[in-house]
């Protein structure tokens, strides 16, 4: 048998060098990405005294996690903010689904005169950020004396044109034959939605839920405008309130607060990664 040619090992080393170079740059990038997370966790268990003298010293000398986290939880109503966040996000999501699923179905599978016009409005809506409608909606809420309520925090987001669009796209690919068969079986259109469309749309609903919850849990602009008291503050707003109280006196507790507020989404992300990536990058279907 012919001897193995000399140059093939070189190809292997070439590939090894390429792989090591890639890892080098990726690890560098990953370190940059992880830096704030790591530092947040380290500082959140660092004794207050050390924060001021530490400089660049990664490992805390003593474990002060208990003090810092309990201070974060007692000094300001962090848990209240988080409960507000849960309530607001779930409220928004429920209303969005209630409106978007039937509309998506109508736009995808039923034909009626106004359909193209409504779809055009949806496409237009996709390009309009909430900051555009914030001012008039704020004025209306002020007129109605509804500022600083849960309703005020949620109302602009009851409409999700993105949700309508997404469900329309999803239902478009749903086989028309099944819907015809259901009609022949005597289902009403409402029954078709409830018994056939919604169960089949679970993946789209899950992805949309991730998208909706992450965007509203993290949103600052609108809650900052309509809430004045801490009672209805959502997590980002709570974080600002907490930070302003602390005014730089206790970074340990501040970082503990940041860790608490970011924890739910990070944990959810690490558990259901694929859904998160799908849900958040779904805007890519536009």
């Amino acid at each position: 048998m012919a001897p193995v040619p000399k140059s093939r090992p070189r190809r292997r080393t070439d590939r090894l060098v390429a792989s090591l170079t890639a890892h080098f740059f990726l690890i560098l990038g990953a370190a940059f990405i992880l830096l704030p997370f790591v530092w947040m966790l380290l500082t959140s268990i660092r004794p207050a005294s050390e924060v001021f003298t530490a400089g660049f010293n990664p490992i805390p000398s003593a474990f002060a996690g208990v003090e810092n986290y309990s201070e974060a939880l007692t000094k300001s109503p962090l848990l209240r903010f988080m409960a507000n966040g849960v309530f607001v996000c779930l409220g928004i999501l429920a209303v969005q689904l209630l409106f978007a699923i039937p509309a998506g179905y109508a736009l995808a599978k039923l034909s009626f005169r106004a359909q193209p016009l409504i779809f055009a409005l949806v496409l237009f809506g996709l390009t309009v950020p909430v900051q555009v409608t914030a001012l008039p909606i704020y004025i209306a809420l002020a007129r109605l004396n509804l500022l600083d309520t849960y309703f005020a925090i949620m109302v602009p987001f009851f409409l999700s044109v993105f949700g309508i669009f997404l469900f329309r796209q999803f239902f478009k690919s749903f086989p028309q034959e099944i819907i015809h068969a259901a009609r022949l079986d005597g289902f009403t259109e409402t029954e078709i939605i409830l018994r056939i469309i919604v169960p089949s749309a679970m993946p789209a609903i899950a992805a949309f839920a991730v998208f909706s919850i992450t965007s509203h849990w993290n949103d600052l602009y609108w809650p900052l405008i309509v809430t004045t008291s801490p009672d209805h503050a959502t997590p980002p707003l709570g974080m600002m309130i907490f930070r302003d109280q602390e005014t730089g006196s206790n970074y340990g507790a501040l970082m503990a607060g940041a860790a608490i507020i970011t924890a739910p989404l990070i944990i959810a992300f690490l558990i259901a990664q694929r859904h998160f990536v799908r849900g958040i990058t779904m805007t890519g279907v536009k």
């Binding site: 990405i33 704030p36 997370f37 980002p236 940041a258 970011t262 990664q273």
Partner: peptide, 13 residues
């Protein structure tokens, strides 16, 4: 790792 910041609350970070 690279996707982590996308999900996290930007205010806190």
């Amino acid at each position: 790792i690279f996707f982590l910041p996308v999900t996290t609350t930007l205010i806190a970070m």
